[in-house]
Simulated assay, not measured.
Amino acid sequence: MSAGSMPKGFVYLYDVDPSIEQDMRYAGPNNFTRQPVPGYDAAECVLVREAAEALKAAQTDLKPMGLSLKVYDCYRPKQAVAAFVDWSKEPDNPNAKLEHYPDLHKSALFPEYIATRSGHSRGSTLDVTIVPLGSSPADTDDEDGIACTEAQPSDNSVDMGTGFDCFDPKANTDAPGLTPEQQRNRTLLVDVMSRHGFKNYPKEIWHYTFEPEPYPDTYFDFPIVPRPASGKS
């Protein structure tokens, strides 16, 4: 499928705001499955245009503070969701378990934390954090041997109390026991995103959906392919 075959209304985030950092975890091995996920043929954030434009507006709010948004996941093809379900039936990888779901069995992740029918597939949902403007991700992969509930950010994210895809109550937006810095960072993210039409999923501080959704009842399965060199999607 070519980039030009994306459904009407979908865009590459880079074409709307190239200043928003992208760390598309499911396009590579740095995720809870420890391998690239089917459907992610390029490390690109794809969204419906309304969500991309709203994200650009949120980025404009953060820049004067010396901060930037960073997205970990955006549109997610249905085939990727199916791959997550298949992964749940495989034996555990001890390091992946420790980092992403230290106190849960794989089977408990569905549907509590990983949906079998994901809102990401509708194109308006994304996973996002805040990073210092102009910073670079640390040259590291997952923090093997350290529980996600205890580790400091392994990338350039500000400290949110857990890393991305930490399937644990500590990742709940209003989780107790956070440090003042972690609470401030979470509050800032929620505030800036909500000002521009994004609703937070309360069990995951990084998870937001733009409302109203242009495709509230449609789950797409087109693969994410490289962005055309011309920048036109």
Rank of each mutant, 00 (worst) to 15 (best):
D139P: 00
E150N: 11
A171W: 00
E112G: 14
P169T: 10
D174G: 00
P132R: 10
D144K: 03
H105Y: 01
D168R: 09
A108D: 13
P132S: 06
D165R: 05
D144S: 03
D159K: 01
Q152W: 03
L126C: 15
N172Y: 09
A108H: 02
E112N: 12
L104R: 09
D155Q: 11
F167H: 08
P169C: 12
P137C: 08
C166W: 01
A151G: 13
T149P: 04
L109C: 11
L133N: 07
S107A: 12
V131F: 10
G123N: 05
Y113A: 13
G145Y: 06
T149A: 10
H120F: 08
R117Y: 13
G134H: 08
I114F: 06
G161D: 05
V128A: 15
L104P: 01
L126E: 00
M160C: 10
S107Q: 10
S124H: 11
D144P: 00
V128D: 08
E150V: 09
V158Y: 13
E112H: 14
L109P: 06
S121A: 15
D139Y: 02
D103A: 14
T149R: 07
D165W: 04
D139M: 10
E143Q: 09
N172I: 06
D159L: 02
I114T: 10
F167P: 04
A151N: 12
K170D: 05
A151D: 10
L178G: 09
P102T: 01
P132G: 02
G177P: 03
L133Y: 07
T125M: 11
A115N: 11
T125K: 12
V131Y: 02
R117N: 15
G161H: 10
A175R: 01
D155C: 03
A151E: 15
P169Y: 02
H120Q: 07
D139C: 01
K106Q: 12
D144M: 06
G163Q: 00
E112Q: 14
G123L: 06
A108V: 01
A138E: 08
L178R: 12
E112F: 09
P169S: 11
V131K: 07
L109K: 03
D142P: 01
M160L: 13
L178W: 00
S118I: 07
T129P: 00
A151M: 12
L178C: 06
R117T: 15
V158R: 12
A151K: 08
P169F: 05
G145Q: 11
T140I: 06
P132N: 02
V131I: 15
S121K: 08
S136C: 06
E181I: 01
D127L: 04
P180C: 02
D165G: 06
G119R: 11
P169L: 14
C166K: 01
P180Q: 09
F167T: 06
A147F: 03
A171G: 02
P111M: 09
T125C: 05
E143N: 10
T179I: 01
N156E: 11
P180K: 04
E181P: 00
A175S: 15
P169D: 07
R122D: 01
C166T: 15
P132Y: 07
P137I: 14
I130H: 03
S135T: 04
I146P: 02
A138T: 08
S124D: 11
T140G: 12
F167C: 04
A115C: 07
G177K: 02
C166N: 05
